[in-house]
């Protein structure tokens, strides 16, 4: 393997495809994972993969703002958010196994079905896109849908929030792969939103626990309007 091949776009797109595959795998892993602590670790790994893939795109296409967003991703999604989540579950002492609304095998089957839909839907979009990463749009969409599914099937508040954050990761990946990322302003805005949203949700966790002595959101059904 020559150095020329290592910096060529063909190699880069192979690497990005690898990243995409890992992301999808992580998506399924999160869907199947029962323990909150492992869930956070998976989320951190997802952030790391995302950061790597953004960096690869940045190096191959020489887009300066992608370096920034890779750095931002690393800071926020690999360091800050997992740290906050770890602290949170220690403070709330919620390390228990998660009960899901659907059992895990069924969820996985639905997940596979979603991936098929995502690939089918993404096909015309990737034909339109001219980026080196266009093959991964289907995977990115599949990750979005898988995170959404996870949000639906979990009954505890913390996993739901992790699912929400994972969905944001997938969206970010979709943006990078379809158009080399969103404008810097938008990215900064979203990053800030995620951070602020995390803080607000943390406050909510404490409130929910105060109110119901539990973080199980099924208790919230009691508060709906008669």
């Amino acid at each position: 393997m020559t150095l020329a091949y290592l910096t060529s776009s063909a190699f880069a797109s192979q690497l990005i495809n690898l990243c995409a595959a890992i992301l999808l795998l992580l998506g399924f892993a999160m869907l199947a994972q029962r323990r909150v602590l492992s869930l956070i670790n998976l989320f951190m790994m997802q952030g790391l993969v995302l950061c790597t893939s953004t960096l690869i795109v940045a190096i191959t296409t020489h887009q300066p703002h992608l370096y920034w967003s890779a750095g931002l991703t690393f800071l926020l999604k690999v360091l800050a958010l997992p740290y906050i989540l770890h602290r949170l579950i220690r403070r709330l002492s919620v390390k228990w196994d998660i009960e899901t609304l659907l059992n895990i095998p069924t969820t996985m089957l639905i997940g596979i079905f979603l991936v098929i839909i995502a690939f089918n839907v993404a096909q015309p979009i990737s034909l339109l896109s001219g980026t080196i990463t266009r093959a991964t749009i289907g995977i990115a969409l599949a990750c979005v849908l898988l995170s959404f599914l996870m949000m639906i099937t979990r009954s505890k508040a913390v996993p739901q929030v992790i699912a929400f954050l994972a969905m944001e990761n997938a969206l970010f990946f979709a943006a990078t792969s379809a158009t080399y990322g969103m404008p810097m302003v938008v990215e900064l805005g979203i990053a800030l939103d995620v951070l602020v949203g995390m803080v607000i949700l943390a406050v909510f966790f404490f409130q929910i626990r105060e109110q119901f002595d539990s973080l199980d959101i099924r208790h919230m059904e009691k508060v709906h309007e008669e």
Binding site: V121, M151, I217, H224
Partner: peptide
């Protein structure tokens, strides 16, 4: 108000199903 069951999973399901249907339709 019948739609409003008070279960977050069901609310999320509404938007999920809408998203899927829209995606398939536009395809």
């Amino acid at each position: 108000a019948f739609l409003q069951q008070g279960r977050i999973a069901i609310y999320l399901m509404y938007s999920f199903v809408t998203l899927l249907v829209l995606l398939v339709l536009t395809r």
